[in-house]
Nucleic acid binder design. Structure first.
Length: 445
RNA sequence: GUGGGUGUAGCUCAGUCGGUUAGAGCACCAGUUUGUGGUACUGGGGGCCGCGGGUUCAAAUCCCGUCACCCACCCCA
């Protein structure tokens, strides 16, 4: 078992059985996004490193030490002047979507865009449960809508994804507002002023974070730190009128949708681009690992990338945490996966009784496949009995035995491997045609 | 980056106070049987016991190192 070429750390091989669930997640995401009016986009899997440094914020851990970066090969590809930093495999989907939105000229030709994406993201960090170096995210981004209805619509789509998967009413939306940039600047300063005198009393993590991202001190889990944070200044105390009205509008819209949300001042997203609405979706029965979705508004991002001021709001859902949660809930039911699971097995297994029927059986399978049937046959020269066993184990629904008798009589019957006896009419017609094709002109070449 | 745990057959694991050719179940292959069909039975293939070094007459087993994976911290799009 000494593997010469082991799987790269933090990656998974998705084998046929694994893909049953994955494909169910994918189709659920597509259906929910598309019924919500979103269309799919597929930006490249890698981008200029500077895109991520600029959009996520270069002091974030993601940019500082978790990026899969490759150097460029030649000077001629250097688009910028000095050190471009090469290419980086996307650690998240929003930056690429915003770049594509801008590059395709949507600010001019159709500012309102409702997009979704689905695919692999890459993050070079130490794997652990629920965290991989290559993982899949489903995300929605709405560009060009400044009002709170867009925020509500985004949250609604995320909720419907989880509900479609079978999550119950315990789903919890936690919301907060980061205010506008000016509000954030004011708040950052007052937080610095509040926390600085108590740094000596706080944990070492807090001391580190103080300089890099003072907001994160608010959700430190150390007991003593939490006590010290209790009296910290509230953003809402310094937030401007516009952001406040927006937040109220967002809450009203959620209420109109019949959704209850929980205000949680501790929600402070880690990336720099968020403004105003931020939210997370949790499933409390899962305990500590209950966060399933994160998102919010990022009105400054498109402008940060060199475009016109463009409002935007979105979310991202990681498949891996969703899979863990589904497993804990024993979801989805087998019946929901029946079609995907069924596609792993043939419909008709074609058996050759003697060597004389090998080629006719090959043609039988071909004809059935042309008719759209999943047909299988033995490829390893097995005996009749072994073919039967293999057919049984394959999960095939029907057995078509082609032997000397059938060649003479020109009639073929299907036997059910499941116990039923009746041949469906549609299958019977396909079978007749297939048999004629199989027996036609057997020796010509 | 820090800490803990685990490495034996394709998979899940037994086996270690050091002692013959290293085991089971499942899976795989062949055969027998059940009326040519998932059963049952018989047989078979498959392991440098993660890797390297050390101790010893003798190492899967003890010691050192190393690598890999898992879990947690960190961080989280």
């Amino acid at each position: 078992m000494a593997q010469s070429f082991p799987r790269p750390r933090g990656t998974r091989d998705l084998l046929p059985d694994d893909l049953v669930l994955i494909r169910h997640l994918e189709r659920t995401a597509r259906r929910v996004a598309e019924t919500g009016g979103c269309v799919e986009v597929r930006p490249p899997l890698f981008e200029d490193t500077r895109l991520f440094a600029r959009s996520l914020g270069d002091a974030t851990d993601v940019v500082e030490k978790e990026m899969f970066t490759v150097p460029r090969r030649s000077e001629s590809e250097q688009s910028g002047s000095e050190d471009s930093g090469g290419y980086t495999f996307r650690p998240e989907g929003t930056a690429g979507a915003a770049r594509a939105y801008l590059e395709a000229g949507f600010p001019q030709r159709g500012p309102l865009q409702k997009w979704y994406y689905l695919g692999p993201m890459f993050r070079y960090e130490r794997p652990q449960k629920g965290r991989e170096r290559q993982f899949t995210q489903f995300g929605v981004e709405i560009f060009g809508a400044a009002g709170p209805l867009a925020d509500a619509e985004v949250v609604e789509i995320a909720l419907r994804f989880f509900e479609a998967l079978g999550f119950g009413a315990e789903l919890e939306v936690r919301v907060n507002s980061m205010g506008d940039p000016a509000d954030r600047d004011r708040w950052r300063e007052s937080l610095r002023g509040y926390f600085e005198p108590q740094l000596a009393e706080r944990c070492s993590d807090c001391r580190d974070r103080f300089a890099r991202n003072v907001f994160r001190l608010l959700d430190c889990k150390v007991e003593r730190c939490r006590e010290l944070s209790a009296g910290a200044p509230d953003l809402f105390a310094v937030m401007g009128e516009d952001a406040r009205v927006h937040h109220e509008g967002f809450l009203d819209a959620m209420c109109a949708l019949g959704r209850t949300v929980r205000e949680d001042r501790g929600i402070v997203r880690g990336l720099d681009y968020y403004t105003r609405t931020v939210f997370e979706i949790h499933y409390p029965p899962l305990g500590a690992r209950s966060a399933l979705c994160g998102g919010g508004r990022y009105d400054g991002l498109v402008a940060e990338l060199g475009g016109p001021a463009t409002p935007a709001v979105g979310f991202a859902i990681g498949f891996t945490p969703t899979e863990i949660a589904l497993a804990a809930l024993e979801l989805p039911s087998e019946s929901e996966l029946a079609d995907l699971r069924g596609a792993l097995a043939p419909e008709v297994w074609c058996v050759a009784v003697t060597e004389e029927e090998r080629l006719p059986v090959l043609r039988l399978a071909q004809a059935l496949r042309k008719a759209g049937r999943r047909a299988a046959l033995d490829l390893r020269g097995k005996s009749v009995g072994a073919q039967m066993k293999e057919a049984g184990k394959s999960g095939a629904a029907w057995l078509a035995v082609l032997g000397p008798d059938e060649r003479t009589s020109g009639a073929l019957t299907l036997r059910s491997l499941a116990g039923e006896v009746e041949i469906p009419a549609a299958l019977s017609a396909d079978l007749d045609a297939a048999l004629r094709a199989a027996l036609k002109d057997p020796g010509s070449r």
